[in-house]
Design a protein around this nucleic acid. Structure first.
Lengths: 235, 235
DNA sequence: GCATGGAAAAATGTTGACAATATTATAACT
DNA sequence: AGTTATAATATTGTCAACATTTTTCCATGC
């Protein structure tokens, strides 16, 4: 039932090109290549992807529905730039939802899923040790998303996926600049082990602590930046 | 910050006409005038509302993002028709989210909000006694939405609003036909009182019991129907 | 140097047309 | 009657053009 062509795209319209655009922008935001506040003019995007504005538009409307970008009348879409207040609410909501997803997922993993997650944790450690921060961020997000995928309750899981993306935006916006993107090596390991053991309550606890740690590392200063779209959006 | 022009429309594009269409369809689904599976051709809608298809389209894409309608390539949009499995997941998710919203909202109501909710509960009892089921359904949904509005965490509240709408669709689909739309007179009263008393845990408990009752009343048989759009969508 | 005003440019809003696809109706056949 | 093939219709997909609005830039004045 759950179509997997487009990451967490729920169930909706699927011109292949539209999905590509949706995924491309989503991915760029997720990996923090597109910073908060970056403008996304329809014409520029339609030239980059070689399609008409109407196709771009649909992708943008979907993204705005996911709170990833912000659309205002007669103005270019911009990557969402949540306030500090909204950030706090996002983390609060995510803790509550993710904890429940952990409880429901614990002990439910197939052998293959388990192996997959194991390798992801290992890969994450490796990229961290080697200093590939961009890759590690991507793997870290993929870890949370992969666990959500395994949750028996996909309604709850999709809600979590959205919250993961939105909190990722806030981290990019409010993290202290020099810091190697908030990371504690043993956090994901601990969560995975609790899930494997079927100990949902411990997994939930670990996930909350993980998110607390992340949130505490945020500052009040915002990191704004300018970007060149065409150099970023070419997947 | 939270714009209230369009019920739970999050923050997004807002051609007035587009919002009207969005709200109109949303309302028709919510009040069960548009049944599950009903087709929503773009041309028909654009004639009804007197606008171009592109305007209708944007409203439809937003609705599909909310899981209210389903869009498939080259096919007309249709009102969502969740499976029994998805229904169970929806109720499970809603219980978990709504319980938390109750906890956070308890004791936070202003005097005016309190009075407003009081009058809503009273109105609900009255319409029930008088047998105006359609009105009562509307008031009942409004009760839950009004409480969500009062929640300090609006991220969580908006997630709940979406779940309220989606569960409403499942109720329309799976309720036993003759039954006067699942209703226990004292449920909302008990929830409201707990909120007023600042007893979040009791409010959460009552909300869960309320939802359990609702869910248990659903059958496996689906209620399908045919409809004439133009006679419904004229608000 | 700075604010103000207005023209030029850029971007979105809206529309209608045509192409591609899906749905429905019709006809032929068993 | 029921089933299949085919034609007709309905519906969405994509596009380009123009209208409207916002943004940017530059000249003017103080």
């Amino acid at each position: 039932m759950a179509q997997t062509t487009s990451r967490a795209s729920k169930t909706k319209r699927t011109t292949q090109t539209e999905n590509q655009i949706y995924d491309s922008i989503r991915h760029a935001v997720l990996t923090q290549k597109l910073p908060s506040g970056a403008r996304l003019p329809e014409l520029t995007l339609s030239e980059i992807y070689g399609v008409n504005r109407s196709v771009v538009r649909r992708a943008l409307v979907r993204l705005s529905g996911d709170h990833i970008i912000l659309m205002r009348r007669n103005q270019s879409a911009v990557v969402a730039h949540p306030t500090r207040e909204e950030t706090a609410q996002l983390f609060d909501a995510r803790r509550h939802v993710e904890a429940q997803v952990m409880r429901k997922t614990a002990g439910q993993l197939s052998a293959s899923a388990r192996a997959e997650i194991e390798s992801m944790v290992a890969a994450e450690h490796q990229t961290h040790d080697e200093g590939h921060h961009d890759d590690r961020i991507h793997l870290s997000l993929h870890f949370h998303e992969r666990l959500a995928d395994a949750c028996p309750n996909q309604v709850l899981a999709q809600i979590l996926q959205e919250l993961i993306l939105r909190t990722s935006i806030t981290v990019a916006l409010y993290k202290v600049p020099g810091m190697a993107a908030c990371y504690r090596a043993e956090d994901h390991r601990g969560i995975a082990d609790a899930i494997f053991d079927g100990d949902g309550e411990r997994a939930a606890q670990r996930a909350c602590e993980h998110l607390d740690y992340l949130e505490q590392r945020l500052t009040h200063a915002r990191n704004d930046a300018e970007v060149d779209l065409s150099s970023i959006l070419n997947s």
